[in-house]
Amino acid sequence: MSIRATTSIKDILWPAVFTACMAWLVWYFPRFIVFAGLANDNLNSGYLGAGPIDFAIMAGAVVALVMGLRHARTTAGEGVIETPIDRLSLFLGRVTMLLVVILVGVMFYEVMLRYIFERPTLWANELSLWMAGFIFLLSGLYSMQQRNHIRIYLLYDVLPRPVQRICDVISTALICVFAFAMIWGSWNEARDKFLRWETFGTAFDPPIPATLKPLVLLVMVLVALQAIANLIADWHKGPESHGVIDEGEVEDMIQTARAQHEQGRHD
């Protein structure tokens, strides 16, 4: 039992440490921009260059990432880890789960203050929006790794395995083309927003544009790499079939519909 408990603690520990370190780094990242000499006048006047504490926390984030990747493991209902990118997607999935918990806590705190104590915050709404953006993007990567993204299997399941492979190649190629188009069309805008550390323009003024715009491009690259890794890992697997129809369940639905129809006629 002690081994199981220790493993569970490690599963939570490293994503939590990584999340805490990245929260600090994201909020104070203008210090690194100033340190690199890439800042504009506004950043130069508002921030000092990165110091020892900032670099120590960056090192902590790297250590947490490495250890988290090393100890990443699947739980019941999750697919197996077959490639290195699977480990990264799974680890970031754990980070996303922690962000969901934090987001719920922030929203609960805001509701309590707003409707019970009548003292709403100036930061909860923007922070919730900011975190929701991170959750939305990172959960897409986790969904791709788990093969849980939206797909229409009606035609795919009846095809022979060689034709299924052709469909997989086409879909993966389309994902890669889309990722390339996103980077090609948005790189300059994302770079500019990042380097000038563009903020949201509210009282709290979080750097939502400066962080989410580059993150969209980064996640698109990771999704494309994950799609390629899925294609390679699934290439020699047998025919895929998704969702066998339960005839009994269908019959129950028909009987229920008929009963509701008859009841409606009598009413």
Rank of each mutant, 00 (worst) to 15 (best):
Q146P: 01
G79D: 10
A132I: 07
E198Y: 04
D192K: 00
W187P: 00
F35Q: 10
M97C: 04
S171D: 13
N188I: 14
L113D: 02
Q255W: 13
F134H: 11
V104K: 02
L98P: 01
G37N: 04
L13A: 13
L90Y: 10
P214V: 02
F194S: 09
V63C: 05
D234I: 02
I175A: 08
A173W: 05
I9P: 08
A259I: 09
R191D: 03
I183K: 07
H236C: 09
F204E: 04
V223Y: 03
M58I: 09
T211E: 11
R191V: 12
I3K: 15
A72Q: 07
A16C: 06
M67E: 06
V80L: 09
L225P: 04
G49Y: 01
S171N: 10
V219P: 03
V163C: 06
N125Y: 06
Y153I: 07
N230M: 02
A5G: 09
T83V: 04
M131E: 06
V66D: 07
M107T: 11
A64E: 10
W24Y: 15
E118L: 13
W24Q: 02
P209M: 01
N125P: 07
V66M: 01
G185A: 14
K10R: 11
F32C: 01
I245F: 15
R4S: 14
L122N: 11
H71W: 13
V26Q: 10
F200M: 11
I254S: 10
Y156E: 10
L69M: 06
L159E: 03
P30E: 00
T75P: 04
E82F: 01
L88Y: 03
I170W: 04
G79C: 06
V177T: 10
H266F: 08
L25S: 04
V158H: 15
A233F: 01
A5T: 13
R70I: 10
S186H: 12
H242I: 13
Y156C: 05
T121I: 03
R73Y: 09
P160L: 08
A64Q: 03
A64R: 04
V62D: 02
D11T: 11
T256W: 05
H261C: 06
I12Y: 12
E198G: 05
P162C: 03
V250G: 02
L225N: 04
A179M: 05
L159N: 08
M97S: 10
V221H: 00
R165Y: 04
I12R: 10
